[in-house]
Amino acid sequence: MKISASLYSAGDTNLQELVRELDAYRSDYFHIDCNDDVDVFDDIAKIKAYSDTPVDLHIISSEPQKFYKLIVDTHVELVTIQYETIEKWADLPVGFKGKLGIAITTETPIDVFDQFANRASFILFMATTPGKSGEPFQTQNFRKIREFRNRYPNKKIHVDGGINDELSFILRNMGVYSVVVGSYLLKQEFIGSAMVKLRSNQVGSAYCVRDFMLLPDEIPTLRIKDYQFPFMLQIIEDYKLGFVNVIDSNNHLIGIVSNADIRRAMLRKWPEIENLRIEDVMNTSPATINSNNTVNELLDYIKSLPFPVLFLPVTDNNGNLAGVLKFNNLIKGEL
C-alpha cells in the first residue's frame, strides 16, 4: 500500500528539509491540499525542484477548472477533486498526463462516482470531517470501501483521515491502494519510525474485529434446513468468497463449507456425488474469531494456526454468526 505524506500537516517545517527527509524514508507521494488557494502551486514547483516523488494534489474548490492550466504546467501526477464543493465541472484538459480521482466525505454515497467512472482512476474516501485535525477515523467508511471495491473492482481506492499504524494494517487487508497520512507521520519525533510502523504488521489495538468485518448481509450464509447441494454451490458462486457459513435456525454457527471441503467430499464419494449430504461436505470445527477480539489478538491467532487462512467466520460470545473477515485483498493492497 502506498503512503502519501500530507506535507502541510508538518506546520512551519522547512519544505526542502521535509521533502528530503520523506524521500529518505521512501514516501510514495507528497500530498498537497489546495483549498481554493493558487499559492500552493508555488510549493509544488519547489517540490518538483527538490524531488522526483509524485505530487498528490487534492483540490477543494467550487470551480476546480481554474487550476487546470497550473496543474498541467507543474506536471502534477495525481489530481483529486472534492465532489461536494463542485459547482461548475469541466473535464481536465488533454494536456494532463496524470491520474484523476474523486474525493467524497463520509456522508456522500458512493453512487456519485458513477458520473466520473469513465474518466477517474480512483476514489478518495475522506474518513474524517475535513478541516478537523486529529478527529478519529469514521468506521462507517469500512463498509463504503467494501461496497466501492465490489462495484468498481478496477478502480483504485485511496483513504484520507485518522490514519495510524493499526488502520494502515486494516486498510491494506481491505485492498486499499494508498493512504494519506498527516499528523501520525509528520508530528512524530522520528518520521522514519512512524513510516516503518505504517508498513508493519505489528500494530496497536484500538479497533476490534467487529469494526471492520463483513456484516451479515454481505456474507454467504446457508441455513442447514435449506441445504441442497446445488443451492449451496450457487450461494458460494454468488458471493465469490470461496466458502459458505452454515447456521441453524437460531443463527448459531454450525460450520463452514469451503471449495476445498467440497473437493475432498467429491473425491471420497466419487462417482456417487449426486446425494452428497451436508455432513459430507461441512467442516464442523472451523477456525473462527470473536467479534470483540482486537487486531493484535487477531494477528496472534492467525500466526498460531497451522495453516494459511483466506477468511475467518466471526462469532459473538454466544457462538452466533456475526460476520466474516477475508484476507484475499492483503496482497493486492501491497501492489
Rank of each mutant, 00 (worst) to 15 (best):
F122L: 06
Y239R: 00
E279Q: 14
G323M: 10
M266S: 08
N328T: 15
N296I: 13
L198I: 10
H31K: 08
T221S: 03
G204P: 00
N320V: 05
I254R: 14
T108G: 15
S133A: 15
L22V: 10
D300Q: 13
M1N: 05
N259S: 14
V244T: 10
F96A: 03
E77W: 09
N293L: 13
L335P: 01
R119S: 14
S9Q: 01
Q115M: 06
F307V: 10
I86C: 04
N245G: 07
F142S: 06
W89L: 03
I254H: 04
N259L: 11
N201M: 06
V324R: 07
D12P: 01
K66W: 06
L321F: 14
Q115F: 00
L298Y: 06
D56N: 02
P286W: 01
M1P: 08
T315A: 10
M174Y: 13
L321T: 09
T288K: 09
Y177E: 15
K2N: 12
P220D: 00
L100Q: 13
I236P: 03
F137K: 05
L185T: 09
S183D: 11
K48L: 11
I157T: 11
P306F: 09
T106A: 14
Y8W: 12
N292A: 12
P220F: 07
I254Y: 09
N320P: 01
P220S: 03
I262H: 07
I219W: 04
L100F: 12
T53K: 00
L276C: 03
V209E: 08
E297C: 00
T85I: 02
K66D: 08
R26K: 15
G95L: 01
S183G: 12
S9F: 09
V180G: 11
V176R: 01
G323Q: 11
A322M: 14
S6F: 08
Y50I: 04
A90W: 05
V203M: 02
T288N: 06
T139I: 15
L215V: 13
I32A: 03
K132Q: 14
D261G: 08
T221E: 05
L214R: 13
I110G: 09
D217A: 00
H158A: 15
S27Q: 00
Q234I: 07
I236R: 04
E17P: 00
V79G: 01
V181M: 05
D36T: 02
N290C: 04
S193E: 14
F116A: 12
D73R: 10
P230R: 06
P216R: 00
S183I: 10
F169Y: 15
M126D: 01
D217T: 01
K187G: 07
M266D: 08
V196I: 15
M174V: 10
K155R: 08
P64E: 12
L222G: 03
L92F: 01
I102S: 02
H252G: 02
